[in-house]
């Protein structure tokens, strides 16, 4: 697999590590109910199709990236830096 890092260009997937779904937003630990945090920590969808997910370019620029990958074909339709998103903002 190849991932086109917005900073480094197309790179082999070996340079990256996978985390999981990019869309769950961490609730504020002071305000949220325990159940909401449990959902954030444990509950994930398992879609067959486009999936926005977090990858870390650990052997490159150390960016966390949001990669939109089709789980059926591995086709990657978008790669964006995670950092652009503002805290607490839904993706």
């Amino acid at each position: 697999m190849r991932i086109t890092c917005p900073y480094c260009g197309a790179r082999d997937a070996q340079e990256f590590s996978y985390l999981g779904a990019a869309d769950p937003v961490r609730p504020d630990g002071m305000a949220a109910a325990e159940a909401a945090m449990a959902d954030y920590v444990y509950l994930r969808d398992n879609p067959a199709g486009p999936h926005r997910e977090l990858w870390y370019h650990g052997s490159g620029c150390r960016s966390w990236l949001i990669v939109t990958r089709d789980t059926r074909t591995h086709a990657i339709s978008a790669v964006e830096p995670a950092k652009v998103r503002k805290a607490g903002e839904a993706a």
Partner: peptide, 18 residues
């Protein structure tokens, strides 16, 4: 060492980019 570095980058870039 590597795991914590990755975690800190996650906390900064993904959780609290501001």
């Amino acid at each position: 060492a590597g795991k914590v570095m990755q975690h800190l980058e996650f906390c900064h870039q993904v959780l609290w980019p501001d």
